[in-house]
């Protein structure tokens, strides 16, 4: 219990970020029209691909004889990249329609 309280005290900066980000996240998409639900979900999906950074760190830190870390890290980098790249590309494809709308309007 003590260690958890100390941890909270030591990491208060991070905890503040979390709380503020929750409000920002809710505030930022509060007025989205239902037409955009799917592209927005897809875009958010690409953004949580930021987990790739963790995968890169795992991979980059792995000692050359630690096969578990090497293999799992490598797999994590691949999966994370698929999430990021695929996510952004598919969102862009979904949103192509709004480019055309501008031409018409």
């Amino acid at each position: 219990m003590d260690s958890i309280l100390t941890w909270i005290a030591q990491n208060q900066q991070i905890i503040y970020i979390v709380i503020l980000m929750i409000f920002v996240g809710i505030e930022v998409i509060g007025h989205v029209p239902s037409v955009l639900h799917t592209p927005l979900m897809s875009g958010a999906n690409a953004i949580h691909g930021v987990v790739i950074i963790g995968a890169i760190i795992v991979m980059g830190k792995a000692e050359s004889d630690n096969y578990l870390a090497l293999v799992l890290g490598f797999l994590a980098v691949i999966l994370g990249t698929i999430n990021v790249v695929g996510g952004f590309v598919v969102t862009d494809r979904m949103l192509e329609m709004f480019k055309k709308k501008k031409k018409n309007g």
Partner: peptide, 8 residues
């Protein structure tokens, strides 16, 4: 992460 967690 948190942004997507909240917005999602």
């Amino acid at each position: 992460g948190i942004l997507v967690g909240a917005a999602g």
